[in-house]
Design a protein around this nucleic acid. Sequence first.
DNA 1: ATGGCCATCGCGGATGGA
Length: 263
Amino acid sequence: MKFATWNVNSLGVRLPQVLEWLSQQAAAGTSVDVLALQELKLADEKFPVEAFREAGYHACWMGQKTYNGVALISRVPLGAVVRNLPGFADEQARLITATVPCAGGDWRVIGGYFPNGQAPGTEKFDYKMRWLDALRMWVAQEMAQHPRLVLMGDFNITFDDQDVWDPAALRETIHCTSDERHQLARLTELGLVDALRLFPQPERTYTWWDYRDFAFRRKRGLRIDHILVSAAARCHVKACGVDVGPRRNERPSDHAPVWLLTG
DNA sequence: ATGGCCATCGCGGATGGA
């Protein structure tokens, strides 16, 4: 199985790039089985279900006009879909959970677009913390029922300074605060592993680069998109990496896809 | 020192992102 996550910053704009990337992956020998997408910025009725169907994918999604929006794209039909966090009232479409049937054992997949948080001390930061509390409860509950679980998406949090191009300058700024990292640590303490760090990665491996100031070219980025796996899932993990190729496209997303290969 | 880009909505420029 190959999993991937990609914040596309508007599926309306990026759909051709997503389809191109999926076909490139297939041509390279390992086609993507499950892709989590974030920042669709599309109302539900505008989701390009037909385009994905023609590419050989089923989909479930939770969209909203203008902002946010998440989807799971899968080669096989997805089951037991849950949208957003049960019990956490939220106007924003940020989470989607589904089961991927598999002969060797089903996979439970959660795709998330975590709140940005703006800056410590703001209303939006408080919302991010409350959302993370609710997410942790949900993931704990899901892990109890589904041992083989993958949590992936745009977390909008760096694990540590290795994920930051200039840790000194960005110390305690958004994505890098101790409060956010503490939340991320509590999430992993449920029994989840940061799959990318199971394998050696190139120096300065990031998943997001500012559109401004040639940040991508200058390797000034952050690693804020992650794939976390449960212990039962981790046994099957073969490789994990970031594909920076799509960041070189014309009119790229500011994020690059992260992928995970399992056996 | 400041802001530098991009998408959305909607037709100017504000808002949000990270």
